[in-house]
């Protein structure tokens, strides 16, 4: 429908909408997060849901204790390798449509513990992440910003057509490989279907001034 005509009608007190807009409007304003915190970022997440920052304004205050009832997984904190299988399994148990916010440096890349032997270097190695929030930890405002970004993403999703989101495509997977806690590392160390390893070519030739001083 023509946007101009829609605004004209709106001025006359007539609301014209489509099924898709109605569907997305309903979904984006009732994002129920999974009650699930891993580390210090969870404290900021709790603060965001409390009265001062009040995530209820965005319809996202109903933290569900069961993945069956949740739409949004906020990976708030350091994902240890011991915990990663549980995180992925919880994501698998959530009903579609489901979204993931990767909150904080640890959930994105391992953060300050990236060099640690026991820390997963980013939850996006196993599950598809929709919004990343940098910070250590990000403030509640950052989480609210991420939520609004996710709402904008949901608003743009189309109901039909080839570019429709994953949950509307019958052949697209809803479950991802749950890694096993192996003897040395998680097996597999990443899910290649989800994670594209960034091609980084760090060359220190010529610019490496180590040892000169």
């Amino acid at each position: 429908m023509d946007e101009h005509l829609k605004t004209e009608l709106r001025k006359q007190g007539i609301v014209a909408t489509t099924l898709q807009e109605l569907y997305n409007w309903g979904r984006k304003n009732s994002l129920w997060p999974l009650n699930f915190g891993l580390a210090c970022c969870a404290i900021e997440m709790i603060a965001a849901s409390m009265a001062r920052y009040d995530m209820a304004r965005f319809g996202a205050e109903v933290f569900r204790p069961s993945p069956r009832q949740a739409d949004l997984m906020i990976v708030a904190g350091t994902v240890t390798k011991k915990m990663a299988p549980q995180v992925v399994r919880l994501y698998n148990q959530m009903a579609e449509p489901k979204y993931v916010i990767s909150m904080g440096a640890c959930a994105i890349s391992g953060g300050p513990f990236k060099q640690g032997y026991n820390v997963l270097k980013g939850i996006d190695r196993y599950i598809p992440v929709d919004v990343y929030i940098p910070g250590c930890p990000p403030r509640p405002e950052a989480l609210i910003d991420a939520l609004m970004t996710l709402q904008k993403l949901i608003d743009k999703q189309s109901l039909t057509g080839a570019d429709r989101p994953r949950h509307l495509q019958a052949e697209a997977p809803s479950e991802f490989i749950v890694p096993r806690f192996g003897a040395h590392d998680l097996e597999p160390p990443q899910n290649p279907e989800v994670w594209d390893a960034p091609l980084v070519n760090i060359s220190l030739a010529g610019t490496d001034d180590a040892g000169k001083h």
């Binding site: 069961s66 993945p67 069956r68 399994r89 919880l90 698998n92 148990q93 009903a95 579609e96 109901l159 039909t160 949950h167 509307l168 495509q169 019958a170 997977p173 809803s174 479950e175 749950v178």
Partner: peptide, 15 residues
């Protein structure tokens, strides 16, 4: 619109 997507994790008893 929305196809069913059951799976071993999703159908597991414990959550």
């Amino acid at each position: 619109f929305s196809p069913r997507k059951p799976g071993p994790s999703k159908n597991a008893i414990y959550e």
